[in-house]
Design a binder for these strands. Structure first.
Length: 490
RNA sequence: CGGGGUGUAGCGUAGCCCGGUAUCGCGCCACGUUCGGGACGUGGAGGUCGUAGGUUCAAAUCCUGCCACCCCGACCA
């Protein structure tokens, strides 16, 4: 493991893929485009889930669950929504198999055709808004703040582990409100939750912004997003929050009586992040020696490796290791003491390094004599000898340092790969180098599409919290009032 | 779905042009020596050569169909 592993320089895309497979995060399954998430990878996803879930609940949301199947007629009620997803839907048409009469095996029973086809959800707005119709009569029933953790299916042409798979896991929040103001506030609140999660937990800096009309979610009035930069300079959309206006309420006839006694359509939002965040995590921090995990998401935060020749030595080392382990666990640190005698220390060092364990503690006979341990951190590869007095406090601080170091490193990378471009030549050159290019844009979809066609770059977002600036569109030369972010994206 | 390529042990491969006992490395198993950065030696196990058919005394190798996967385009969290 770890041998014959390409560097990022050699082949970034293969580096990513090999890393995901060799670090035991996930592998391709027998089903085209669908992955198996392995225990180590799933443990990271579970940590993401539990942290996000708490953030959702702290902002007033509750979890619920809606069906995997959506009747075709529901799906087609919101015109732009269908148009956006139609090309990638898996459809259930039959409900029974039978033995072929010629004995050739099991076939779909043609007698068992469904009256109405069922779409396997690519997202749940339609089934949920059809349900909400029955839940909402009065302003007293609002808001509805619901989230669901689920799997969805989008029949993608080309897939990549975590970044784009035909089936993926995600959460989708679907909220209903009495006013547009309240719905917009909710949309922005959840965008902040995502940004906060990305920066504090994933240690990935993100840019909050709004999508252009062309990049907007099918059925939304506005799509807000957080955009992150990967180590090859490409952009990755890490989360989206949509203001859906009254589109779905109108499509599913969800009305309520407001305080003034008048009927009105309900205002909606939806927001989601997916297992794609796993891909972002890998691509943002890892290096040519394997995975690098931020401590807040590492399934194992500290690994203890004994170095010994005899059983007596192992026993003495284990006594020290057990004490250290107990102290760390008392502080909520997840520790693994790897005293397997089937692998050698050097092998274990490489193994845990490859799997991104933030801190490694090695204890050998020398340490026993001196009352020390060797502490190695994964992010910088630095090793130091520490006295075991107050070791758990030192390690706790070290984990915090690693978490913030990863964030700062990623932030520095993004800043040094973000450029302003004022001419089209400069613009194209910067894109080829990789990174975000801040440029003026005339605001038309036409220009956006032409730039995409010529450069493969898209407008990642129109950043929020950015001051207005007069300028000329980098493509058309027409006047513009602010810069937007262009990049090639995943 | 267009254009190109590849299927040989768990993984990576040689052999194919020019038909005749299937190669090597990693991994795996056993034993011994090792153990502070992926140890070494000796022995061993593991194969319907993607699949179905054809040509032939004989097919991994030649021919045809099918299937799967990879790369390049259009689509995307």
């Amino acid at each position: 493991m770890g041998k014959d592993f390409p560097t990022r320089e050699e082949n970034y895309s293969q580096w990513y893929n090999d890393l995901v497979v060799k670090a035991d995060l996930a592998e391709n399954s027998a089903v085209r485009g669908c992955m198996v998430i392995k225990p180590y990878g799933y443990a990271i996803w579970e940590k993401m889930q539990s942290i996000l879930d708490k953030m959702f609940k702290d902002t007033g949301h509750s979890n619920a669950y809606f069906p995997l199947f959506i009747p075709k007629s529901f799906f087609t009620k919101e015109a732009s929504h269908v148009e956006g997803f139609a090309k990638e839907c898996a459809v259930v048409t039959h409900y029974r198999l039978k033995n072929a009469e010629d004995g050739s095996g099991i076939i779909v029973d043609p007698e068992a055709k469904l009256e109405e086809e069922l779409i396997i959800r690519p997202t749940s707005e339609t089934i949920i808004w059809n349900t909400y119709r029955g839940w909402i009569q009065s302003y007293r029933d609002l808001p509805i703040l619901v989230n669901q953790w689920a799997n969805v299916v989008r029949w993608e042409m080309r897939t990549r582990l975590f970044l784009r798979t035909a089936e993926f896991l995600w959460q989708e929040g679907h909220t209903a409100h009495g006013t547009d103001k309240e719905a917009v506030e909710e949309t922005l609140r959840m965008l902040d939750v995502y940004a906060d999660f990305a920066e504090k937990t994933l240690a990935i800096p993100v840019i909050k912004g709004v999508k252009t009309a062309n990049e907007r979610f099918a059925g939304a009035l506005d799509t807000y997003c957080i955009e992150a930069m990967m180590q090859d300079g490409k952009a990755l959309q890490a989360g989206t929050s949509h203001f859906l206006g009254q589109n779905f309420a109108k499509a599913f006839d969800v009305k309520f009586t407001n305080r003034e006694g008048r009927q009105d359509y309900v205002w909606a939002t939806s927001w989601g992040v997916s297992t794609r965040l796993m891909g972002a995590l890998v691509m943002a921090h890892s290096d040519d020696d394997g995975l690098v995990l931020p401590p807040k998401l590492a399934p194992i935060q500290v690994v203890i490796v004994p170095i010994y020749k005899t059983d007596e030595q192992l026993a003495a080392i284990s006594a020290v290791a057990d004490k250290i382990q107990a102290e760390l666990k008392a502080k909520g640190v997840s520790v693994k003491y790897d005293d397997r005698d089937t692998q050698k220390p050097g092998w274990k060092f490489s193994e845990y390094e490859f799997k991104g364990v933030p801190v490694r503690i090695a204890i050998g006979p020398r340490d026993l004599e001196n009352g020390t341990v060797e502490v190695a951190r994964r992010d910088t590869k630095e090793k130091s000898v520490m006295h075991i007095t107050d070791l758990s406090i030192k390690v706790e601080h070290l984990l915090e340092q690693i978490q913030s170091n990863l964030y700062n490193k990623a932030l520095n990378f993004r800043d040094t790969h973000t450029y302003k471009a004022d001419t089209y030549d400069e613009f194209k050159q910067r894109l080829d180098e990789g990174g975000f290019v801040m440029a003026h844009w005339d605001g038309t979809t036409e220009t956006e599409l032409k730039i995409k066609e010529e450069t493969k770059a898209t407008i990642r977002c129109i950043p929020m919290n950015q001051k207005a600036e007069e300028g000329k569109c980098v493509f058309s030369g027409k006047p513009s009032t602010r810069r937007v972010i262009f990049a090639r994206a995943y």
